[in-house]
């Protein structure tokens, strides 16, 4: 279970996170949305140990992750994918996944034993390219490889930063299925950032909305969809006439 308690972070006087608190269940797919500059990536960086919060605490189960660094977070079972792909381009597809398994083998061998690299590559449609350098794969396959590598971490919590970026509708639908399958297989929680609200609404159990570094709303997709504050943040609805607002909301959500 992920527990974020009153986390704040400032950069040179700019408050990127202001007392963010929420709790995620152990096998939940939680969406994290908000406009640009809302603090989503800062929060993900804090959870994965890249940034040390100024105050507050981040816990995964009983373990305090706050400011312990990325290696510690990963060893505790925090996996991550990136907005801009960060594969190891000169390593083969298989070796990329093996790098993901190194830590799991050392720190949680019982989990590592249950991960079969060949089966994993097969599930992500990468088995035929196992010996190919990752940098030579088409973009969509590179995205899938990053997911496969993240699953190989045997993570308890996967942080996915814009996994649907650059994908068409068909690929996004397939990605949603893959995320549900990862949750089912690994029994892990997923925290998904994305700007594609239709994708987020379709795949997430709950959604947390950030704006100006604060949690504006958290709840099921239906509750978030109906929340006027969220609509205001996304659509500038304060200035919009009610009938226009409804139309624009429809366009946005559907």
């Amino acid at each position: 279970m992920l527990s974020i308690d009153n986390v704040s972070k400032s950069f040179m006087g700019v408050r990127a996170l202001r007392g963010v608190s929420f709790v995620g269940a152990a096998d939940e797919i939680l969406g994290l949305i908000g406009p640009n500059g809302a603090g989503k990536s800062t929060l993900v960086n804090a959870i994965s140990g890249v940034l040390k919060p100024d105050s507050g605490s981040i816990r995964l189960g009983d373990v305090d992750l706050t400011g312990r660094g990325p290696e510690f977070a990963a060893r505790q079972g925090v996996g991550r994918t990136f907005q801009n792909l960060r594969l190891f381009p000169s390593l083969t597809v298989r070796q990329n996944v093996e790098v993901g398994l190194i830590t799991c083998r050392r720190h949680r061998p019982e989990v590592a034993r249950s991960i079969d690299i060949d089966a994993l590559l097969d599930r992500f449609g990468l088995a035929a390219d196992a010996g190919r350098p990752a940098g030579t794969l088409p973009y969509g396959q590179q995205r899938r490889l990053e997911l496969a590598r993240a699953e190989a971490l045997g993570a308890k919590l996967l942080l996915l930063d814009e996994p649907a970026a650059g994908m068409n509708d068909y690929e996004t639908a397939a990605l949603a299925d893959q995320l549900r399958a990862i949750r089912r297989r690994s029994r892990c929680a997923l925290l998904v950032i994305d700007h594609d609200l239709h994708f987020i609404m379709s795949v997430c159990d709950r959604i947390c909305v950030l704006d100006m570094g604060e949690v504006v709303a958290i709840g099921t997709p239906e509750l978030i969809r109906a929340n006027p504050k969220v609509a205001e943040i996304y659509l500038g609805a304060a200035e919009a006439a009610p009938h226009q607002k409804n139309i624009r909301e429809e366009r946005q959500w559907n």
Partner: peptide, 23 residues
């Protein structure tokens, strides 16, 4: 294994740390 980690780190050092491998 350590050699694989070193080869990975030559291109994406920060990512290797996020995989739990000690810098």
């Amino acid at each position: 294994t350590l050699g694989l980690a070193i080869r990975a780190a030559t291109r994406e050092f920060s990512t290797v740390r996020l995989m739990g491998i000690r810098a």
